[in-house]
Every structure is written in structure tokens, then in C-alpha cells.
Design a protein around this nucleic acid. Structure first.
Lengths: 232, 232
DNA sequence: GCAGATTTTGCATGGTGTGCATATTTGCAT
DNA sequence: ATGCAAATATGCACACCATGCAAAATCTGC
């Protein structure tokens, strides 16, 4: 039950194509489990779905399920382990003329475009999460796990090379890395993740009214303007 | 396992002094359970603490534990059920000259001052949560539950009486209430909660450097300025 | 005190999660 | 192909989590 923050350790260990079949089979099993879980949850409600049912639907044993997911709830999170890394890469590669907030907005926009490919399952997933706030919290937790790394990328973009005012002791452990982070990168990362969530929630509540990108851009415009009171 | 979002239903039902001893005893039992849980967790790590141990330390049966908390993890959240209501009240009572962001900042500041009273246990709690990110996520979930209500209060402050542009169909259910909310109040509420969290995390990482209120005010200043890139 | 409501408790039951030993599958070199 | 080493899947045992139910203990108002 160490949990949430380590459940893609499997893939990241030697991720890059350590060997074809093994890697592919693991990805397939993992995908089968998540898809089975989401489809079952869409039918009968997330709380009614047991690990046994999911495992059976995916054609593996219950024990194998727990080899892939630390807990039952984790299977409903469905986070792409490499998504965070892509966003950070895009952030660092963005034109230097952009403000941090703009660069972050564009990086997230690009990532969202890629996520649109699994459209159908994604929507089903959203439906499940709406009915089970409990699981939505887990998803937030997954995003939270990426937050510190995103903050580090932001800090790197602002001050390439890592030069920072103040004491520059060499930081090794995770704990130390968190302490070394400035307030601004942490805040920007956290606010960006929040902005993404609010955009998603608001758009999900009225999907027909506007396309998602418009909501997303309005949110970032509000942030850039300092969250002014809207005109009466 | 319905969870997280309802675990203070007990007290809010008839909260206001339905009868002296009963109410006091319930509060005492609940407090004893949370305090026992936090102290045990501080000693041996949150994951090692069983419900049985907590119940024993608090002098009640295991079954009684589950009368107070929907799940084992909930005991570590330690959220004051009335805190959200106080913040909303303060927000609505704030001087009309303040911007929404300023009013929210002051309301939260005032609430934090009250929370300082349980200083010692609060710090112990922070220590436990740092070692168990899993539980920190639960706390975020608790805050998330307050978020929608906070957003409603913000909307009310902006437009007293609830007059909003667009279709004004009477909204009854919770689902409908969420749909009716504008983007701005939702965003402001979410960002404020996030700002609070980041402030707390940053301060906890370097408690000796600055007092908490200073960190908190800097965060809100950054938000009001539109999150500009910090000076090199 | 007493009747009625509330709370606590023990017990039974089923789902969740982990360690360990074993069987199977895969990668690789021969 | 064949055999060996590493990784993976599985079954089983066991502890913990969580809930429903009925009986006992406690509190409230009279």
C-alpha cells in the first residue's frame, strides 16, 4: 500500500524497449485490465466492480492484477505514465519569447490534442469518474505526483542550468529536491494542473456549448490577467 | 466505501447542540480517534497503524471506529467540518471594495489564524502526511469537496441574488448546481484551494525561514499579478 | 426511575492486499 | 531446435478493511 505515486515503476525501470514481446505483452495486459475495469464500471457502477470480475474479464488471475496495480482503485486512474515527460519536454522546447504561463499553456494544449485519440474510452472514463468522486480524487493524486517534476521543469526553463539565488547546496534525495524548489515554479505547476482540471470539469458539464480548447484558453487568459472580477 | 465526501454527515445532521452530553461525547470520541491515529502514525508510520490499534488507543471497539469514519484513511484527514462554512461566511461578509481574490485571501487568512490553536497536533499531522502522500491525496479530496460550495459563495459575492447571464432555469439537484456555476467562480475557488496547499507545502519544507502568513500573501500576490516570470 | 431513542459492541461475512513457493513464458546463446 | 537464466503469472495462506444485523449499554426528556 505504498501506492499511487509508484504504480508505473514497472514500465519506467527499463522502459525503452528492453525487449519486444515482453514489453508489448505487459502493455497489453495493463491496457486490457484498465479497459475491462472502465467498461464494467460504466455498466454497473465503479463500486460494484470487484477485482475478481476485472481480472476475469481481462483473462488473468486476481494475483496478476495486483502485480500491475497497487490497489483496486488505481486501475480506474488510467494515467499515461509518459504524458508528464512529454509535457516537460514541450515546455523546455518552447520558444524562449513566451512567458512561463504561455509556454505551459501551449505544452498542455499539445498534449491534450494527443489524448483526443482515445476519445471513446476517455469519455466513458469521464462518465465513471463523475459517478465516483472517490476515484476522481485518485486521478488528482496521480496529477499531483507529476506536479513536482513539472515544477522542476519550470524552474529549469526560467533559470537554465539551475542557478538560483540563495544557498546552492547539492541536493540528492527526493526530499531535498522538493526543498530546493522555489515558490514560483511550485505555484505555477500546481495552478496549471488545477486549471486543467477545472477546464475539464467545466467542459464536461456543458460539452455541447463550446469546444474544450476554448474553455482551456479562457482559463489561462483569466490566470494571466490575475483573476480579475468578471464584468457585471 | 461511498466515502470521502460524506464523513461529517453525523455532525451536520442536527449539529447544533441537540443535547449536551451526547454531542460532547461524540465529539470527544471522534477527537480521541483522530488524535490516537495521528500519534500512532507519527511513531510507526501511517501504513503500520491498524484500525484495531487506533480503536484500542481511543478506548472503543473496532466497530465503533467505522461508525465514525467511512474508511481507515479518513481518520488521518482531520478536516474540521465547519471550516468551509466559516470561510464562506467571511467571504460574504468582507468589505465590498475588495476584489474577489482579495476577499478570498483575507477569509482564508482569518481561518488559518484559528487553525493555529491546535498547533502541536497540526504539525504532527503534517509530518504524517509528508511521509504518506497517499493520505495527503485524501486531504485534497476533502478540500475538493468544499470547492463547489466555495465556488457558489464566490458567485454569490459577485452577483448577489444569483442573477446570471444566460439561461436561468431553476436548478435543484447537486448535479444541476454544478452545471449552473460559471467558469470564473469555479476557477477562483479551485485556484485558491491550490494556493493554500502550495503555501502549506512550501512553508512546511522551510518552516524556519519565513512565517506562514508571508508565504501565503506572496502566493496571492503572484496570482493577482497574473503569475509573471520572476525577475532574474 | 422509566420509556424511547441513540450509541456501542460482537459476530458473521466478503472484498482487499501481500508474501511466498511454484509453474510458465520469454530472451538469448549455442 | 535446445537449454539456461530472467522475468512473469499463478495458487494459496493470511491479515486487514468494511458492512449488516441484532443485542446490550447509554443518554434524554418526562
Amino acid at each position: 500500500m505504498v501506492c499511487i505515486f509508484a504504480y508505473h515503476a514497472n514500465m519506467s525501470e527499463k522502459s525503452a524497449a528492453s525487449s519486444g514481446l515482453r514489453e508489448r505483452k505487459k502493455k497489453a495486459t495493463r491496457a486490457a485490465l484498465t479497459e475491462a475495469a472502465v467498461r464494467l464500471a460504466a455498466e454497473q457502477g465503479a463500486e460494484k466492480v470487484t477485482v475478481e470480475a476485472i481480472s476475469a474479464a481481462a483473462g488473468v488471475s486476481v494475483r496478476t492484477f495486483f502485480n500491475y496495480f497497487e490497489s483496486r482503485d488505481d486501475v480506474f486512474v488510467m494515467t499515461d505514465a509518459e504524458s508528464g515527460a512529454r509535457v516537460r519536454r514541450k515546455l523546455l522546447d518552447a520558444p524562449p519569447g513566451l512567458t512561463p504561463l504561455e509556454a505551459l499553456r501551449d505544452a498542455l494544449t499539445a498534449e491534450l490534442a494527443e489524448a483526443e485519440q482515445q476519445h471513446e474510452l476517455w469519455l466513458l472514463h469521464a462518465e465513471v469518474l463523475r459517478a465516483a468522486p472517490h476515484l476522481l480524487v485518485r486521478l488528482l493524486g496521480a496529477h499531483l505526483a507529476d506536479e513536482t517534476e513539472l515544477a522542476e521543469a519550470i524552474a529549469e526553463r526560467i533559470r537554465p542550468g539551475g542557478a538560483r539565488p540563495g544557498p546552492t547546496a547539492p541536493a540528492a534525495s527526493d526530499e531535498d529536491r522538493r526543498k530546493e524548489l522555489d515558490l514560483y515554479p511550485r505555484l505555477l505547476a500546481a495552478v496549471a494542473v488545477t486549471a486543467l482540471r477545472v477546464s475539464a470539469e467545466h467542459w464536461c458539464a456543458r460539452p455541447e456549448e463550446r469546444v474544450f480548447r476554448d474553455v482551456f484558453r479562457e482559463v489561462f487568459a483569466l490566470l494571466a490577467a490575475g483573476l480579475p472580477a468578471p464584468p457585471a
